[in-house]
Design a protein around this nucleic acid. Structure first.
Lengths: 346, 346
DNA sequence: TTGAAAGCGGTACCAG
DNA sequence: CTGGTACCGCTTTCAA
């Protein structure tokens, strides 16, 4: 049973295709009788208007393109879920591409989809792109009339809607929390130091130290590769040996967990004499031992927010909505890799 | 700078649209001179043929619909990545939907996309659907001419291409491995016992016991809810107390890890006097302590295989390719939650 | 109340 | 070598 078209229905009842179209759209122009029989038949035959014909006609596809650096990352999977939620609730589909942190793949993807496949993009900038600071492809697609909503890894170089976490404040607050629980030598481990996002967090760290009257020690500000655990270990181990640290703030879950492991191996007790806080609130945090205290970025909420912003812009093409950047508050999820005030009082 | 169409180009050079179309497709019918100028201009203006117009004309979209029960699950994320890989390599896009393990969402999704949005589906059956054994929606979409490739959670009730792990053998081999390392009281913990997939694994377990001459003990065959850790704990703890177990095979990573934790809490040493093996080879396994020995299902490979099967079928619509089921070999990834032969010999 | 026809953006056949 | 035209499936305006 092949898919049925308006034409088939028209032939069946020996009426014109316009009659059928109107009947299916419940137009007042068509008699109740005709409408009834046509609708009934259409339902029986599971008629569905052809997507491409509609998109062509309406010049809109009701689909969102989402470009994510890495789907195996729990944070992005969460964002994806959020986007999916509100997209679906609004009758939008999602075309997903993975940039794999590659500039070229990102450019290709934008081009591939900027041919009427999608109405707008939701994306987080690939690491490579961020390093190269090459944002023309974004500007071009916006110029061509395809709106973009960036999330998490954004750039102020591109004028578009954005959804970010309060990264600056988040780290500052984290420093404060650590200080409050008795930590003074707080290292900062970043996996994305050169990216704007990484810089924000770094600045937050500095601000946090300043607020708390702690000194900046360049030695304990580390820049590591997410996947190069070996090197990471080499770099960080000496600090433990020298007893130079009593806490670590890491910008990723993996590097936070790694720090915990190294600390434990070096004989530290977590959280008794060493604290760790990591960004992103994934499964690892809930399963590590001890469970990791994290800065939750509310990925799902970020996704939902981004989708809503994009859809709003798409649906109200006429009225110019001013570009906006929404900030999603992060939360400190206290688990067992940090001390609590209560413990302190003991 | 709005998107440019063939018409615009035709107007620009005062030629017909068919000339432009042919020039852009490098037809032999068009003079080199005309082709050159038209192609140059098209490139300059970043002309891209409209996706919906093409799809409408060609009656194919070069996009694949993928329906996944849960994107926060690492296994599915891996499969997704695999599909993305080969889809992209073949010029296909991907529309993704999450069924959230819900029958209704699954049905809706299939219907939403079966309107010319996609050329074919890759999907894993939602848990609810598997329990209800309601597979009509799959049959309908196939009947309408949209091919489906199922992976992991499949059903023999639906005639379509499939990609599965060698679940039966996998568990049997796992039992063997445990026996070889000295385990005799091997529990089987399933999170999807009623699903066909779960049954396969269960049968593999029974077969494994039989092969090894071990007795079946109904008491240590457990059925748990993935997310109901509390209940799980209640059920399983008594066995540890009674010293009834020396190994667990769990059909999910989470439940395997949970078993490890409970065992440890009850004073067992892993792997010295207790072994655990879990299905799915995610991040948790590599970060648990001890690191979990797993049965890797090669999610990415499954995704790639599924995509290739679907694309092959789509591209050779004329020749009838017989339906096939491909089996992806699982591998036992030995980490530290099981003993090795070497240790045994000491 | 119904139908004819144009148009969305292309491709491809046929004519010149 | 170039142009006219039908068609993919649907909506919508205008005419009947």
């Amino acid at each position: 049973m092949k898919k049925i078209t308006i034409k088939d229905i028209a032939a069946k009842f020996d009426v014109s295709i316009s009659t059928v179209s109107k009947a299916l759209n419940d137009s007042y122009e068509i008699s109740e009788k005709t409408k009834a029989k046509i609708q009934k038949y259409a339902k029986k035959k599971k008629y569905k208007p052809n997507f491409n014909a509609l998109s062509l006609k309406n010049r809109r596809t009701k689909t969102i393109g989402i470009v994510i650096p890495n789907m195996l990352n729990y944070f992005y999977a969460q964002v994806f879920k959020g986007v999916e939620n509100t997209a679906n609730a609004n009758g939008y589909k999602i075309i997903t591409c993975i940039s794999n942190e590659s500039y070229h793949k990102e450019v290709e993807t934008l081009e591939m989809l900027s041919n009427g496949s999608i109405d707008g993009f939701i994306l987080s900038i690939a690491k490579e792109t961020g390093l190269m600071k090459n944002y023309e492809h974004f500007e071009n697609t916006i110029e061509e009339g395809t709106p973009i909503v960036m999330f998490d890894r954004v750039t102020k170089k591109v004028a578009c809607d954005k959804v970010v976490a309060d990264d600056f404040e988040a780290v500052a607050k984290t420093v404060k929390h650590l200080k409050n629980t008795g930590c003074n030598k707080i290292a900062f481990v970043s996996t994305l130091k050169e990216l704007p996002l990484g810089k924000q967090r770094y600045k937050g760290y500095l601000q946090g130290l300043e607020n708390e009257g702690l000194e900046v020690d360049k030695d304990i500000i580390l820049n590591v590769q997410e996947n190069d655990y070996k090197k990471y270990e080499e770099i960080i181990t000496p600090f433990f040996k020298k007893n130079k640290l009593d806490a670590v703030i890491a910008t990723s879950e993996q590097s936070a967990i790694a720090a915990m492991k190294i600390a434990q191996r070096e004989g530290y007790k977590i959280p008794e004499n060493f604290s760790v806080i990591g960004f992103a609130n994934g499964i690892l945090s809930r399963h590590s031992s001890p469970k990791l205290t994290t800065v939750s970025q509310h990925g799902e909420l970020m996704g939902e927010t981004a989708a809503q912003m994009l859809i709003d812009r798409l649906e109200k093409k006429d009225q110019e909505i001013p570009l906006a950047t929404k900030v999603i508050q992060t939360d400190l999820v206290e688990r067992n890799s940090t001390k609590t005030f209560l413990e302190l009082k003991k």
